[in-house]
Amino acid sequence: MNGEASTVTGGEVILRAERLERRFGGLTAVSDFSFELRAGEILGLIGPNGAGKSTTFNLISGFIRPSGGRLVVMGRDVTGASATTISRMGLVRTFQHDSLLSEMSVVDNILVGASHRQRGHEKRMEKVREVAAMTGLADHLDTIAGNLPHGLQRMLSIAIALAAEPRILCLDEPLTGLQGAEVGAALDLFERLRTAHGLTILLVEHNMRAVMRACDRLIVLNYGRLLAEGSPEEVSRNEAVIEAYLGRKR
């Protein structure tokens, strides 16, 4: 799918952040940040380095608590809830760094992902095989994760999250360091997850071309605040965005 889908899916709001704020000591990383995630869409969260993307990710996944604002996931107020609780509700994230269990085998990595939802070793293994097939890891099950090639490590971190059967999948720079063909394969996977598995995806990514291609909608963060929001075309034409983000690169 590409930018044509900018008409935006009419799904219900599955995640709503209201005036989210997070301060670290004197520094405000995110402030007055509101956005909505709608069921079945792929929403891109972009912004220059240090704009607060990682903080936002940590906030909505419960890894850090907001200093202010509200977070509603599937109609439930989860402001200040733990990462465990939020994940159990169906919002599962990946990590930009240290995104897997480097000392453990691929099987064990995915098995850990499946541990909460699936009861019993056999069911977990079933899940492992299913997810491994989807992510192209089926031939590497016994490899130690730290020894996998980089591209497969990225896929494994997504596989771990998928094994937890999310409804909302939050991907933190999943394409970093991937080669050309790998990027295409990853984007195809995202699309398949959305259409075949009904997942909603929030994507933080630096690869602009991939973001433009994969996302239905974009939100742009700058200095911890919402700068713009809209379809990839709208955002890429937005003066403020060009100045703050794209402009800096020229």
């Binding site: 890894f63 990590f95 269990l101």
Partner: peptide, 17 residues
């Protein structure tokens, strides 16, 4: 395996519930 996962990187088990 979960115990070992905690030692290896406790953010991963937390992220999957």
């Amino acid at each position: 395996r979960l115990f070992k996962a905690i030692r290896n990187n406790d953010a991963i088990p937390r992220s999957v519930g």
